[in-house]
Amino acid sequence: MKIKDFAAGILTGVAAGIIVNQAFQKMNPNTPAEDVLHAVKEAFKKEGPIDGSWIVMKPEPFTNNVLTMDVYRGGISRIKNGELEQYEFAANAQTGTVVELIQK
């Protein structure tokens, strides 16, 4: 096998990988914020149905006494025992971990 043929095969494989990755990203239009909201909704659904939800698509800075990070802010509402419950949350923009949950 010639070195030219080997290099051409490597370059073809890299180009194909890039094209497949771009096609996959176009087919999966979810943003990180939507992924975070989906995860929070799934956690709430374990306790019962959800009435509504929202999330701010742009991360914002969040600081508690120890940590500083970018978070997505959002909310969940549901009916529990005939009463409306509303929650607001902040989730780490990198990991999706809920770092703040407040019942309104």
Results as ranks from 00 to 15, higher is better:
57 M>H: 10
59 P>H: 15
60 E>H: 09
60 E>P: 05
60 E>I: 14
61 P>V: 07
61 P>Q: 10
63 T>E: 15
64 N>M: 07
64 N>V: 08
65 N>T: 12
65 N>C: 05
65 N>A: 12
65 N>W: 11
66 V>W: 11
66 V>H: 11
66 V>Y: 12
66 V>T: 14
66 V>D: 14
66 V>C: 06
67 L>W: 13
68 T>M: 13
69 M>S: 10
70 D>I: 01
70 D>H: 11
70 D>W: 03
71 V>Q: 09
71 V>H: 07
71 V>F: 06
72 Y>D: 08
72 Y>I: 04
73 R>P: 00
73 R>H: 08
74 G>S: 04
74 G>P: 08
75 G>E: 07
75 G>T: 09
76 I>V: 09
77 S>N: 13
77 S>H: 11
77 S>V: 11
78 R>V: 08
78 R>I: 07
78 R>Q: 12
78 R>F: 05
78 R>C: 09
79 I>H: 09
81 N>F: 00
82 G>M: 03
82 G>L: 03
82 G>Y: 04
82 G>I: 01
83 E>T: 04
84 L>K: 12
84 L>Q: 08
84 L>H: 03
87 Y>P: 08
87 Y>D: 05
88 E>H: 02
89 F>G: 02
89 F>M: 02
90 A>K: 01
91 A>M: 00
91 A>F: 00
91 A>V: 01
91 A>D: 00
92 N>K: 03
92 N>I: 02
92 N>T: 01
